[in-house]
Nucleic acid binder design. Structure first.
Lengths: 332, 332
DNA sequence: CTGAAAGCGCTTACAG
DNA sequence: CTGAAAGCGCTTACAG
């Protein structure tokens, strides 16, 4: 393994001290223009780059951000990661990916790992089972900013970036109300998930307050397959054009669409459908599915910019809510 | 920022030397059982964990793998990353994600970054424009194993893990031949992509060798939207049940399905469709789309195990080909 | 069985 | 404007 160029090597070749070379490279005002030029030229030539481990040992700045998510097979998190990666490149940070598998024990281990690696900051969507948030707060006090996103804890005083679940649910409900609909079938995710706990009551509230006569049936599905089964069951007493399906997530949407296709129904003629989604799955169908957007990409941008402020020393905690927008397809 | 526990702290509390503590912690045979016990207990108590930067500075082992892909909005790469992440956890490695945006310049920069970070190894799917592979080989000689996957260079002597494109194309062609079909519309990706250059000729060869009377039309689409347009055009002189669409990728499949839905056609009654895919998109439709599987997950497992062998000292290069299997849906 | 010492490659107060 | 020196936290030959 060829040795990488070091400060020492440059210093020797130029008959300077290591300190001077180090300073020249960081454009320290003490160093003469001439020396700087010499040093930089040689550094360029031999492709010098500081050993990040040595730098970190001194400065405690790893230039690495961790992104922790419950699952990697999720379109929303992908856009988030993609978005963060984009910004990180620009600022010279790397992104380390961790998956908690929705297991608080693994999550805790990951946190420990992040601490030992002295990452510069953590972006995390917590598991639906996470109860204790002390470990997260502890990291914050140790100088590792923690930005919660999407799945965030209830605790007030921490940095949270979330989609406006209530707003998204409201947009979807209002869109449904524009149609003359008697029956709404709402498919929601796991009861334990914080997003379910916001989206379900808000959706019901908006819908039923505006029109108490609507026959609203809600179910909880923990997988696409389950959502498909439940939709099929609901469709057993189907009446043409009298029925709207609402899906609170891509996962439930995938299941519902499978059931609708299985029954040979067409949207929007035979049945209406609307979802809350990041947008990938809605665009696979024709007509495209109308959805209230929760954009992982936008959330990533917001989270990253909040992170940079924390790194720069902003100490107060802040909750940032990304408003949702309605993207019209032709499915309703 | 609270100070992390160090060897020094343990040594002081126990009135031992740092060397002894270090050895005790790694179960060195020289150290007495009694001392080991004392040290380990205290280490446990104060949650000692070695500073990875200090360790790396000495040992040059970062325990980090880099994964470099052209794009992060790609289901295949997600499964690959997910698969690698799973194994990495077990072995105590972290995964750093890089996206080249299919730009060889960015790719080169990433490579440089990996070298400076002294990552333990690199998994990379190169860009379709990558011409020079010397930089990759150089890393290998510097002791950083490089495992190419999916998009691999033509150069012989390097570690490559790929799906068997020829095999997948063959499986799809054979499946089409089972039906009595006159007309096949094949949608392929960018001409520059290595996978296109294998899948297209093989598919044509198998199909036409078996049945020269088949009217095979092939097109290249660089996006879903383009694939949709091209499919719509092909469908303009559509005759019921006389037509099979073959899509070489998820991207083209998404476009083709959009066109088929737009025309109000049903699979397989009105039109047959078959693809090469990782499996996510085919399963969104009913009937599910028949596809020759190229599994990012399986590829990840193979790549990781090859990586561990390289780390362990295996120096010869090896090309591993993952065979494809046909997953039957009902779309053909 | 244990310890003193050198060194990994850098940064930065201190001195001149 | 430049340099000698200490130190970040660890590992490991060397000595006893």
């Amino acid at each position: 393994m060829r040795q990488n160029p070091t400060l020492k090597k440059i210093a020797e070749k130029l008959s300077l001290s290591i300190s001077t070379v180090s300073r020249a490279l960081k454009d320290h005002p003490d160093i003469s223009a001439e020396t700087k030029k010499k040093v930089n030229e040689l550094a360029e030539l031999i492709e010098y780059d500081p050993n990040p481990y040595a730098v970190n040992l001194r400065t405690h700045n790893s230039k690495e951000f961790a992104v922790v998510v419950p699952s990697l097979s999720n379109f929303f998190y992908h856009s988030f990661i993609s978005s963060i990666e984009e910004d990180a490149r620009i600022y010279g940070y790397s992104i380390i990916i961790y998956r908690s598998s929705n297991d608080p024990k693994i999550e805790l281990e990951i946190l420990k790992n992040c601490r030992h690696k002295r990452v510069s900051g953590i972006f995390i969507a917590i598991t639906s089972e996470t109860k204790e948030i002390e470990p997260f707060l502890k990291l914050d006090t140790q100088g590792i900013p923690v930005i919660f996103f999407d799945k965030v804890p209830a605790y007030e005083s921490c940095n949270k970036i979330c989609v406006n679940d209530a707003h998204a649910a409201t947009l979807a409900a209002l869109e449904i109300l524009k149609k003359d609909v008697k029956r709404v079938f709402g498919i929601f995710g796991d009861k334990n998930m914080s997003i379910t706990q916001v989206r379900l009551p808000k959706f019901s509230e908006v819908l039923l307050n505006a029109n108490p006569d609507i026959n609203l049936e809600t179910v909880h599905a923990t997988s696409s397959d389950e959502a498909e089964c439940m939709t099929l069951k609901a469709l057993s007493n189907y009446k043409k054009n009298d029925f709207v399906v609402f899906c609170m997530s891509d996962e439930t949407l995938a299941g519902a669409m499978k059931a609708i296709q299985r029954k040979g129904l067409k949207t929007p003629e035979d049945i209406g459908i609307i979802a809350i989604s990041d947008g990938m799955i809605p665009k696979l169908f024709y007509p495209e599915i109308t959805y209230a957007e929760t954009s992982g990409f936008k959330l990533g941008k917001l989270a990253f910019s909040r992170m940079m402020k924390c790194i720069a020393g902003s100490s107060f905690a802040q909750t940032i809510i990304d408003q949702s927008i309605l993207v019209k397809g032709g499915s309703l």
